[in-house]
Design a protein around this nucleic acid. Sequence first.
RNA 1: GCUCCGAUGGUGUAGUCCGGCCAAGCAUAUCGGCCUUUCGAGCCGACGACCCGGGUCCAAAUCCCGGUCGGAGCACCA
Length: 484
Amino acid sequence: MHREFPEFEVREKKVQVHSLPELRNVNGPVVMRMAPSPSGPLHIGHSRMAILNDEYVKRYGGKLILRIEDTNPANIDPIAYEQIPRDLEWLGVTVHQIAIQSDRMELYYEQARSLIAAGHAYVCSCVPEDFKRKLSASIACPHRETTPDENLEGFQKMVDGTFSQGEAVLIIKTDLSHPNPSVRDWIAFRISDAVHPRHGREYHAYPMMNFSVAVDDHLLGLTHVIRGKDHINNTEKQKYIFSYNNWKLPEYYHYGLVDFPGVILKTSIIKKGLAEGKYSGWDDIRLGTLLAFKKRGFTPETFRKYWIQSGMREIDSEFSVEIFNSINKDLIDSRTPRYFYVPNPVRIKINGGMQLSGKAPYHPSYPDMGYRMYSLGDDPSLFVPAADWNSLPDGTELRLKDLCNVKKSGSSAEFAGTAMKDRKARIIQWVPENARAFTVHKPDGTQDRGLIEPLAEKYRGVAQLERYGYVNIASEQTGFFTHP
RNA sequence: GCUCCGAUGGUGUAGUCCGGCCAAGCAUAUCGGCCUUUCGAGCCGACGACCCGGGUCCAAAUCCCGGUCGGAGCACCA
């Protein structure tokens, strides 16, 4: 359109504003929560729930409650009580209050008694198979007609340990003809003999998630609940508790499930691997834990950007490593120094050179970061990547980056000046003879062994190893691969 | 099987509630160009999508019906 006067063309750069939709019914501050089960440290899957809730609390003001749902004593790893808050802190998630469910047992008992007294719950001692059979046929079990007094007495026996594991459960009456059989008369309490890491054997009757969640969502004053789609049916069940008590329902949102191809997230698998010595720890970089991403040098802001960009719709999706890496690269690149690393090195001698010296910027876009200077002397030897060297036919001219041109001649190289003349020549990295052995551990469990330039010795943190990738340098000899 | 939900380019999404400004925006990937002593960054360009079939309407990605495909849940896990 403005071809003739391109300088007058006003180009408005559209800034991508990926923001989350407004929540319904926000009147003043919001109260939200995240509720991981304490089976281990948080992984990337949890980070979505944490970030989304945190984003909204920060947008509207209010508070975010971390609720640790430790009501199944058989599935608790004590490490979680400490590690989950640390993981959240690293993510930049602001937790205003922590509620540990196993410390709130009396509240659940109280609510249970009140529902029993009102005739909304009953103690059932049917064998599970019978119970299920009856429910699927929409038939009431005989215990459903027990009087509130008898049920209160029965519940007391569950609580004080007169009944033992498996002998009785407390059931919430719902609707026996509900189309979804799992919503019909669901279990609110069961008895567990397992030792609870915080309370030992103090309690026998433990609330099921649907009961404690409903009670807490109300008592803690939740205004909005954001959680995964896998909870849609649970929401349905929990609504009965709200309705029996005439409690105001929070606004519910359920985001779609994310498939993380090839990422190891399941705590059961991780624990098995840890026990077998297959993984070095919860931060083993083959895992999808936040600890592992941290170790690889990812910045927490990457998680936030990624999940905001993914939105909150109910569509299931596949996690895009590509986009995740790209976000991280964009965030870290400008403050990441450059170094030379030569994986699988081959030694070459440069003939005909004079006093060779190298001068390479720490960051080409930021000269103020300085330069790496190397004096190599006459006819020096150095190392280059075998993959590059061997793929070039004899006689090819190539450039050793920030050093000089050479012409390949067997296993040595003829000096070919220092001027940039052939812009098409391949430019490769190199390291001097006194380079150090350096191993890069990669998330697929493999390692690359090679040589890193001496000036990287003191550096710790993520560096861009030119033409190789971003690596979190952890020690003089080892680094963890971040991404290409 | 039953209940519920969803479907926009290779990938991730915006738009769908309240139909028209959407011959569909952004990001990422790929390809090409510029720049650059990195296969990094930056800039420019190209590529590429509304699941299918009906219906309503002046007008449908958006509403309705049917189909297909995919997902979640399914009862002493959370």
